[in-house]
Design a protein around this nucleic acid. Structure first.
Lengths: 205, 205
DNA sequence: GTCTATAATAAGATAGAC
DNA sequence: GTCTATCTTATTATAGAC
């Protein structure tokens, strides 16, 4: 197991910051170098091209997003607790780092075959939890009449959608409803509660 | 009232296509010219710079997205019909043109002050319907106990989130659940039904 | 109005000294 | 390993003929 040199890591961190903010096309290697506190030449020394550096960042971020998403699932608890836990921890995570989602949704244009493969790999790895765990927990709940008849996939989509939306649409929301402050703790609390209520009343038997 | 020349319009259409796909930074004026069937020089003749052309496109698209979103609201109908109408027409619109939403969410980084202003303008225009109409319809429903106590803003966020999500996350969803085809009519029908059921059961008194 | 040719600049990548 | 200086190429923008 080889460890990255400190410099390599500094470049990776800087690249992550810059790529997440500007995307692949908007990112400038010069800015990455500047943020890392080094120069372009050294960047090329470590990563050869902008493309390779981008792939490293993308790879790492995608893995992190997926595993973060399902790391905190507690399938053994009853449905309301399970939902509340998922919503709460997921909203917190997104709020702490909304850029990742914005970045992924943008860069994932249909036809990004490298990403398709990357995702397939991650999902098929049996050790790590996957969206399928979430789907399965809901399927079980339906079968045991813990909740009403509902399409598990669509419920998963709906949950993720609601947790994500306000944070990636923050600038829009801010312009349209000036009195709402997305990052205010009271907003967060409210948000979680409203999502949970809608979903729980929406699916309880 | 002056009308755009045919060529000007061809360039605008091409620019829209290219900017929506690649974003501001990824778009190339040469590609725009090619798609429009003209050359770069003519593009500059009409729009002077890439920046101005971009602003035209952005301006037009943002206005369209907002007005489309609320054009089909029918506040006079009862709540279930109202919801069903909104969900159905909104999902259809997004599905027909998911790129616009992806583009807006991406380009709206916090600090895009030109956009903030643009949105404020559109919203404050009393003639056109705004998100506030949707909020108001829900407020009324709460007041008249047509639905349970619910935060109108959050319900609006939730509705929009669910309608949008699957379409901008289509590539991700495709990779994780290979057996789901977002553009299949049966998926669309299912999607609308599941959103409506979750929301209606979730808010009925 | 529309084109070809070209200038001006920006950005990625490399050579070579230290 | 790290830097400065430089090359090469891509991209925006303009000049000038038709």
């Amino acid at each position: 197991m080889e460890f990255n040199s400190e410099t390599e890591q500094k470049i990776l961190n800087a690249a992550t910051e810059v790529f997440l903010q500007h995307g692949h096309d908007g990112a400038r290697t010069e800015e990455i170098a500047k943020v890392a506190g080094i120069n372009k030449a050294l960047l090329h020394y470590y990563f050869r091209t902008k493309e390779r550096l981008y792939q490293e960042v993308l790879n790492h971020q995608v893995k992190k997003v997926i595993s973060d998403l399902f790391a905190s699932l507690q399938p053994e608890t009853d449905m309301p607790t399970f939902l509340q836990g998922f919503i709460s921890s997921y909203v917190d995570r997104i709020q702490q780092n909304p850029q990742v989602v914005r970045f992924m949704l943008w860069e994932m244009r249909s036809g990004a075959s490298n990403l398709q493969m990357l995702l397939s790999e991650i999902i098929s790895d049996q050790n790590s939890p996957s969206p399928h765990s979430l789907v399965k927990r809901i399927q079980t709940a339906v079968k045991e009449k813990e909740i009403r008849q509902v399409d598990p996939h669509h419920l998963v989509f709906n949950l993720i959608a609601m947790c994500i939306y306000t944070f990636i649409a923050a600038p829009i929301i801010g312009s349209i409803f000036p009195d709402i402050n997305i990052n205010d703790p009271s907003f967060l609390k409210r948000r979680k509660k409203e999502i949970f209520n809608l979903v729980w009343y929406g699916i309880k038997p």
